Simulated assay, not measured.
Amino acid sequence: MPSFDIVSEVDKQEVKNAVEQANKEVSTRFDFKGTDARVEQADYVLTVYADNEFQLDQAQEVLNNKLIKRTVDIKCLEIGKVEKITGNKVKRSVTVKTGVEIELAKKIVKEIKDSKLKVQASIQGETVRVTGAKRDLLQDAIALVRKQIADFPLQFQNFRD
């Protein structure tokens, strides 16, 4: 039976490259001269540091631009609140979300069932597997999910006949 998986993945190496490029640009920009502005990465958690909130927003914008250029969808970023460190220095944590969350997976399954397409959707960990009798039905299901879920980056992988 033909099937495919709906996943949400981010290339960790591309995120690392974007962080390195953002740090390089921040270190050479005139408006960041003599400041402690930087971006640090620990797995899928990025921490943006700066001397004040304005510079923090500017560093965040540089990071977002670099992520976009590296084809990382910034809709998967969960931007945290601004935290004070010492004196005027501030930081913000940014989490890169991977995997389809349970609520979103349930929403995808519900949308597919409500569409009356002759396909079955099941949640398998952080992926949603869709199976059907014909390839055309699966392509219709992909089009439906793309149209319904536009606020979160999804990929359709493992398409098998």
Rank of each mutant, 00 (worst) to 15 (best):
S8E: 06
E9L: 14
Q13F: 08
E14R: 15
V15Q: 02
V19C: 11
E20R: 14
Q21V: 05
K24S: 08
E25N: 05
E25C: 00
S27Y: 08
T28P: 00
D31M: 10
G34H: 07
T35P: 02
R38F: 10
R38I: 00
V39W: 08
Q41E: 07
Q41A: 10
Y44R: 13
V45T: 10
L46N: 00
L46T: 06
T47E: 07
V48Y: 04
D51P: 09
D51R: 04
D51L: 06
N52M: 09
E53I: 11
F54R: 12
Q55D: 13
D57C: 00
Q58E: 06
E61F: 03
E61N: 06
V62K: 02
N65P: 02
N65I: 00
K66S: 03
K66F: 01
K66T: 00
L67V: 01
L67M: 09
L67C: 04
I68G: 06
K69H: 04
R70I: 02
T71M: 13
V72M: 03
V72I: 11
I74C: 04
I74G: 04
I74P: 05
K75A: 12
C76A: 15
I79V: 15
K81H: 13
K84D: 14
K84V: 06
I85V: 14
I85D: 10
I85G: 00
T86F: 13
K91C: 09
R92Y: 06
R92Q: 11
V94N: 03
V94H: 03
V94Q: 06
T95R: 14
T95M: 10
T95C: 00
T95D: 06
K97A: 03
K97W: 01
T98Q: 15
T98A: 11
V100M: 07
E101P: 15
E103V: 11
L104E: 09
L104C: 11
K106N: 15
K107M: 14
K107Y: 08
K107Q: 13
K107L: 14
I108F: 06
K110R: 13
K110F: 11
E111G: 06
